[in-house]
Amino acid sequence: MNLVIINYGSGNLHSVHKAFEAVNNELSKPFEIIVTNKSSDIEKADKIVLPGVGAFQDCKNAILRTNGLYESLEKMVIEEKKPFMGICVGMQLLAEKSYEFGECEGFGWIPGEVIKLDALDDCKIPHMGWNEIISQKHVLFNDILQGTDFYFVHSYYFKTKTADHCIATTNYPNSITAAVCKENIFGTQFHPEKSHKNGKKIIDNFLKWETV
């Protein structure tokens, strides 16, 4: 099986690649991991990962600038329902709209908007560091205890239109989205690739995830 990690110049590509490789090795390599931006590779994918670091608009433009990349993603994720995982900005891109550096449309795969975190109490922005999550019962959170810490770095968050699509939250100080899921589409605001063994467990769950 092929696991495709989308390479559109996102800064954390190497970290994401190495973390998926490490977990895949522990599972005796069920996947061939391909880091690519080519439509021909993406259209052979069994699972797709979209990393993302930086500004929403820059990430989106970088994807749109790559010939056929978005179209292939849409074909595989929306039409063929291949399991998809977006990380940080790769997850925020799933929203309909973001307000970072002005309004910008997202993929619109999960209803909702990406808005700025409120600077309340002593909470510094960006929300940077380890924070605990509260998750709904979901196979993607198998063996993750309530209150487990994950590594977050962000100033904006995904406010989903439907509570059902938000499958994990964290408090900073208000409750904010930590993970989204809609059918075959999964996304985390935190960085599993930087969240030590619990992050690797999330990746492990994603590699084992059967969506149909």
């Binding site: 670091v53 500004a55 900005v89 770095v153 962000h154 100033s155």
Partner: peptide, 8 residues
């Protein structure tokens, strides 16, 4: 900050 994101 603009190019790589503030958090970087």
């Amino acid at each position: 900050s603009k190019k790589y994101g503030s958090s970087t």
